[in-house]
Design a protein around this nucleic acid. Sequence first.
DNA 1: ACATCTTACTGTGTGTTGCAAGGTATATTT
DNA 2: AAATATACCTTGCAACACACAGTAAGATGT
Lengths: 113, 113
Amino acid sequence: MDDVEWVAQLRRGIMEFCVLLFISQKACYGYEIVSSLEELRYLSITEGTLYPLLRRLQKEKKLESYWLESEGGHPRKYYKLTALGLEVLNKMSLTWVELSKEINILLNQKEQN
Amino acid sequence: MDDVEWVAQLRRGIMEFCVLLFISQKACYGYEIVSSLEELRYLSITEGTLYPLLRRLQKEKKLESYWLESEGGHPRKYYKLTALGLEVLNKMSLTWVELSKEINILLNQKEQN
DNA sequence: ACATCTTACTGTGTGTTGCAAGGTATATTT
DNA sequence: AAATATACCTTGCAACACACAGTAAGATGT
């Protein structure tokens, strides 16, 4: 497994977390998320990943959506967190913090060699 | 997806990183790794996951192995990093650090709300 | 003989998900 | 008309962790 492949594996699960995290700050439409995360090296996401993910999260009642017109161009489907979504996100944040702590323990042990 | 499921997804890819990290500190045998990581909440690993992983890593030339007798009990198969394995691990460490930085940016933005 | 502990390995099946590739629709600019 | 930008969506594949269940073998203790 080369580095590119590894990053793909690393992103499993992480992308769901990041999208929820991103939307938690303000309601967003899909294209906006793709554009915004584009500048991040490891968390950038393509439409083929994002749209199915958004649909799943809505189906799981973590997100809800509404349509808004834009000045010119295609109408936009905005997503925002539900109460459940926020709850799940908070749990995920905690899990993330603890899991990275554990990895950093191993990492620091290595650094000492 | 509940928290348990999410952790399973998070672990994808991460476990390969952690096992390499663990072995980088000293040569280990499989059972030792399972026992040592058992105490960690998110990075504990079962034999059904570890042994196939070790075999894959050896096949990919990131690990090499040798047998040693133990005082009483089954002989142990020790694994150690190859030069390639160390190189890969260093790249992974870097990737991990940068990826967690990006996530922490999003996390901190959320905290400010 | 039997159980228990340590240690290694195998096989099968399931579920999840990232991603590439392609398609659709609206409005503005050339 | 054609191109471009914005925006949404679908399908199908490949990869892999994990659960569960098992085999085997050496050593020690009952």
